[in-house]
């Protein structure tokens, strides 16, 4: 086991669908009751109704939607770059001695760098605009994607490769015909791990450097003492996370019907 062994996505029914939601309703009721009674300072916890109204207003004014699109654009483009580079490199690391020799130590050293700490560096190198954020997301999500691609390409069943060889597949076609499809589930797992990471990086960058987006909108609420904005943005982020996670899982099921 080395540091770069990313575990499978561990989850259970517990996160796939709660058996009961009475506790949530209880919490919401309690939230509303306590805040309306003025038992807690408005700034710390405004009533949920106020938060929802704020959320509605931000949505109608277009601010929330614009911020969401901005954040998603940054996260997705970064993720796209990381996927386009990370998957082939990861597979080559596993199948090609030279590429493996070159990249293995780089991954060992590069992977543990807390990617968030590079935000000030990227601000220096690429400024505080979109490009800087997209590149950082790309760099940050490259590691889990490449490592998962590498590990699953390494784990390809030797008998499958031999099967293809005996049926006449030439050596140079093996990667395409056997390694890639057999590694596909693991590769997709890497992307599933990288998706929340891309948002994690984008949010912090937006909070530190500004330039719009959900992270900026959320922290702005704190700085301008409009906590309803912070809460409303957080709920929006939660919804987005929920939808993205579900979508990716649906895509996985569709793509990997055979697995």
């Amino acid at each position: 086991m080395d540091v770069t062994n990313i575990a499978r996505i561990s989850r259970h029914d517990v996160v796939e669908g709660a058996k009961s939601i009475y506790s949530l309703i209880l919490l919401i009721a309690l939230w509303e009751l306590i805040t309306q009674a003025g038992l807690i300072h408005y700034y710390f916890l405004p009533p949920l109704s106020d938060v929802l109204i704020e959320g509605y207003e931000l949505t109608v004014s277009g601010e929330m939607i614009q911020a969401s699109l901005l954040t998603l654009k940054r996260a997705f483009l970064g993720l796209l770059i990381a996927t386009v580079l990370g998957v082939p490199i990861g597979i080559l690391i596993a199948r090609n001695r030279f590429v493996g020799w070159f990249f293995d130590p780089i991954i060992t050293i590069g992977y543990p760098v807390p990617i968030i700490s590079l935000i000030p560096v990227f601000m220096l190198w690429f400024g505080i605009g979109d490009v800087s954020k997209i590149i950082l997301v790309g760099v940050g999500t490259f590691w889990p994607i490449a490592i998962n691609a590498r590990n699953s390409a390494r784990a390809v069943n030797q008998n499958l490769i031999w099967s293809a060889r005996m049926m006449g597949t030439p050596k140079r076609n093996l990667v395409w015909k056997v390694v890639v499809p057999d590694a596909a589930p693991g590769v997709l797992t890497g992307i599933q791990i990288a998706l929340p990471l891309s948002l994690i990086i984008t949010f912090v960058f937006e909070m530190v450097a500004g330039g719009g987006g959900l992270g900026h909108l959320e922290i702005q609420g704190v700085r301008s003492f409009t906590s309803t904005q912070t809460y409303a943005t957080l709920i929006a982020i939660m919804l987005i996370g929920f939808v993205l996670d579900g979508t990716l899982r649906k895509i996985r099921r569709r793509l990997l019907r055979w697995a």
Binding site: R11, V15, S20, P196, M207, G215, G221, I237, M238
Partner: peptide, 20 residues
């Protein structure tokens, strides 16, 4: 039953959104 729903709500949330 009590905590399950919170877990499934927090699970897909990118955790740095909790900083603010």
């Amino acid at each position: 039953d009590f905590f399950g729903v919170f877990m499934s709500l927090i699970y897909p949330l990118p955790k740095t959104a909790l900083v603010p």
